[in-house]
């Protein structure tokens, strides 16, 4: 055991994420590990290992959520390299609990009138069965909203996410008219963001704090993705309706279950909304077959609309 100590200390430079377990195996495979996007703070903390050895760990690498430095607006606009985020929504599992909405509204400190996630009561034809359809921003690959923005306030990133810069938005609402999914909301009045969040600088990745006279919408929580965590709606859903992942990793997860994206969409006949419009959404839906729950309308204004 002792002879491993030195080799283990060498890993400190690459941080906690390094595959230290391999120090004990003579497999000779590549042990190097890129230290993701985390920047060391330079502030070391002395901690004990399981063996009782003293190990210096940079504060930035302390688990479970590393302290990420605030990224600049320029980096926020370019997005995370090598990623292509995707969401899969399993309609057979949704029973309109609304936990996704609540978590999202809370995480982004939205105005009480606003919901970035909407749960539509759908019925495709008069004789077909009704079902619940949660909608987020589709983060289209051919985004109609981005095309029409006059000032680059809404933009498409290399990781596929469409975000809004509320410090630049002029409030013309052309993007709202352009979006066929009606996903965008507008801060008509004061967004009623509580302090101290309200006086913090705006971040495109957290979409907070919302600002009066500007547009808001679902942002796929890239700040969470940077930390390796899932968007708030995904982790909040008690029924595992939402799956999130990276198309470049070919996997999606709802936290508890993880699937290969290509297999899931192939086996369950995944589809995207309004494919005919050519918007190329990043959100896939699994059809509401073999449903876990019956459809129960909750209130009068939630009668399914035949669309």
């Amino acid at each position: 055991m002792e002879n491993n100590v030195t080799s283990r200390r060498n890993f400190l430079a690459t941080g906690l994420a390094a595959a230290a377990g391999c120090a004990n195996c003579s497999c000779g495979k590549s042990h190097t590990h890129e230290a993701q996007d985390i920047q060391p703070t330079g502030e070391k903390v002395k901690l004990l290992s399981v063996d009782g050895e003293v190990i210096e760990v940079d504060r930035a690498f302390l688990k479970p959520v590393p302290d990420l430095p605030k990224v600049s607006n320029d980096i926020e606009r370019r997005g995370i390299e090598g990623k292509k985020f995707v969401m899969v929504i399993d309609l057979s599992r949704c029973k309109n609990v609304g936990a996704c909405k609540e978590a999202c509204n809370h995480a982004h400190s939205l105005h009480p009138d606003h919901n970035w996630i909407k749960i539509d009561a759908m019925q495709d034809a008069e004789e077909s069965a009704p079902y619940w359809q949660p909608t987020t921003c589709m983060h289209c690959d051919n985004p109609p909203c981005v095309k029409v923005c006059p000032v680059d306030a809404t933009f498409k990133r290399q990781d596929g996410i469409v975000l809004i810069d509320s410090d630049r938005c002029i409030g013309c609402r052309f993007c709202m008219a352009a979006c066929p999914y009606s996903t965008r909301v507008f801060n008509w009045g004061d967004p009623q963001v509580p302090e101290p969040l309200a006086s913090e600088p705006y971040s495109c990745e957290t979409s907070t704090p919302q600002k009066i006279g500007t547009v808001g919408k679902c942002d796929f929580c890239p700040d969470m993705a940077r930390k390796g965590e899932l968007p708030h709606c995904v982790s909040a859903c008690p029924n595992g309706v939402f799956f999130f992942g990276d198309m470049n990793e070919d996997s999606v997860t709802n936290g508890a279950e993880t699937f290969r994206f290509s297999e899931l969409v192939r086996d369950k006949a995944g589809y995207r909304l309004m494919e005919d419009l050519g918007t190329k959404p990043s959100v896939y839906y699994l059809p509401p077959v073999n449903r876990n729950f019956p459809f129960e309308p909750k209130s009068e204004n939630k009668e399914p609309t035949v669309t």
Binding site: L47, S49, V50
Partner: peptide, 12 residues
């Protein structure tokens, strides 16, 4: 109680 990569244990 967590231990990642057999290194520093921590409590959540």
């Amino acid at each position: 109680y967590y231990v990642i990569n057999n290194r520093v244990p921590y409590l959540q």
